[in-house]
Design a protein around this nucleic acid. Structure first.
Lengths: 337, 337
DNA sequence: CTGAAAGCGCTTACAG
DNA sequence: CTGAAAGCGCTTACAG
């Protein structure tokens, strides 16, 4: 079947392409009801679907937002935090007829990413892992593109007018958790975090660390390979064998906390009586053997929604109203700590 | 800063836009090395990034694949299976300079989806929940668009030349699990599945059901609200209270199996001695209290990769080579069953 | 109320 | 080896 375009419809309805364009776009101003009907009928009969590319070129906007996730693993989209953000973004963008283009890229390949090389979206969201220096240079790279950039979960490093930072209060959440744990004056605390460097995780760690320092309570840190459940369990077991049973275990996310919780109860350790356990994220309530996990609720979906709104507003207004936003993280009190 | 386009670069380098276009696209045929250099220099100096929209309009291809997920929940992107497929898709597409546009849509709103209303991508992937009839009509709707359609995890219902089905062998995997469980001749078996209707889940259920029927062994089915861990645990507990402890619990995914496993061990039930437990997906090895979960490995990431390759080939060749593909699902033998 | 026409930024067959 | 020109499918200010 031949391509149906504005001309086909116009010819079929016996009007100009200008008129068809207006009808299709709902511009009823100065068009007779009868003409509208005739055009709509032609559209229906021919199964006409406007070519978005042409509209985009004409109006010079794509109505597509890019989301670049910099992660060494091709499974970038499997991380719950990331997917919650993406879901929130897509959700809000869709409502406004905008699309979300997701793009995972390995740290080495950022320069060759087609989102960098070409103008393919109206604005770009960034979700970065890696050291502060590498993140900084990545943000700089994107900032230099001359497109609006929105960075999720990162400390403002580049001060550019068109770079906006959307964070959750990881430090606040971690602080609340630490205070909660410190109420029992633990003689020893084990903090378990993933090896891969994510700024949000470091922010949580810092806050806990500060809090413990101020309270004059010791804590030790264990970094483990997050991709493997077994590896996490083994690392925790080894650490306990070497340094003894801590009085609290603080995981940097619920997954790690759940593994610790399971491991401890399997060894007959009572939670929270002997050991307090906390997690982070609380994307869904977590419980095990009647103990519910004390955690902090990450508003990741809301982060995505907010990001979408800010970007849409930026595109409309020509500038971000503010360059930094922080969403609160609330303590989820379970029975595990 | 003013927009930099082909003309700007051409003027700067003192050549025609045709020449700049060729250099930028790597067409070195019939262009002197010196000209190439001069153009590249101008591109660098001006920070020129080709406008993808214009190229798309000229070549009439978008180099974007759409992924529509039909799900009543806005959290559509939070499902591990879906995200694994999306990651696989995006991974392969990126390598070829293609983008992945994700779009979650509620069942009622499919007709208003901009992927349906307008031509915005080169091809569309579908991931559908809901009844067979509703899925069928959704596929029909997309098939009528005159664009290549690739359906993940659904039984071929619409026979159209441009609709391709990519599945994993859910029935095979479920069958293997059922046989495995049946080796112990369980007097009673509880099958736990989510309330929401996903074809893959039904395929698993059917296979298990058939297998048990043939073996002359009874099984009962429990449908529960999958979004809530507590609800699942409660539903299983209630079912056991009412019908007694089964000798096997087969979850339709690992998450449900893990909840059952935890719940049983918490009640002092020995797994697998008293009750065998199985899951499905095995996106990562799951273990708890030294028992490792027996499951079936879903090649979701590979499904996405294959889908990307098929779509790319389809776009190149003008037609799908085959209209149905099934990836194997392998049994993961743990100690839980 | 309607239409002719310019032009968005590219690519490409063609002529030189 | 290089460039002039047509045209991809739309939108919109403008004239009638």
């Amino acid at each position: 079947m031949a391509k149906v375009n504005l001309h086909t419809v116009a010819a079929h309805a016996g009007v100009s392409t200008a008129t068809v364009s207006k009808v299709v776009n709902g511009v009823r101003q100065g068009i007779s009801a009868e003409t509208v009907m005739r055009v709509q009928e032609a559209v229906r009969m021919l199964g006409y679907r406007p070519n978005r590319t042409a509209r985009e070129l004409r109006t010079l906007q794509r109505s597509i937002i890019g989301m670049t996730i910099v992660d060494p693993s091709p499974m970038f989209l499997a991380d719950p935090f990331t997917t919650h953000v993406a879901a929130g973004l897509s959700n809000r963008l869709s409502e406004k007829g905008f699309g979300l283009l997701v793009h995972g890229v390995k740290p080495k390949q950022i320069n060759d990413s087609f989102l960098v090389r070409e103008t393919v979206v109206d604005a770009i969201c960034l979700m970065l892992s890696g050291s502060a220096a590498s993140r900084r240079s990545t943000i700089q790279l994107f900032a230099d593109l001359g497109q609006p950039i929105l960075v999720f979960q990162d400390k403002p490093s580049i001060e550019a007018a068109d770079v906006c930072y959307v964070n959750q209060d990881d430090a606040g959440g971690a602080d609340a958790l630490a205070r909660h744990v410190l109420r029992r004056n633990p003689a020893s605390t084990l903090i378990v975090i993933p090896k891969i460097f994510w700024p949000a995780i470091e922010a949580r760690l810092d806050a806990i660390w500060q809090c413990f320092k101020q309270a004059g309570r010791p804590a030790r840190i264990l970094r483990c390979d997050e991709n493997n459940r077994e590896a996490i369990a083994q690392a925790i077991t080894d650490n306990i064998d070497r340094h003894g049973l801590p009085e609290a275990v603080m995981g940097s996310n619920d997954r790690i906390a759940a593994i610790a919780l399971r491991l401890l109860t399997a060894q007959g350790v009572k939670v929270p009586e002997q050991v307090a356990v906390t997690g982070f994220n609380a994307f869904e309530p977590y419980s095990q053997d009647r103990v519910t996990l004390t955690s902090a609720r990450s508003p990741a979906f809301e982060l995505g929604q907010l990001g979408a709104e800010l970007l849409l507003a930026r595109l409309r207004a020509g500038a971000f109203e503010r360059l930094e936003y922080t969403l609160p993280v609330s303590l989820v009190e379970g029975t595990s700590a």
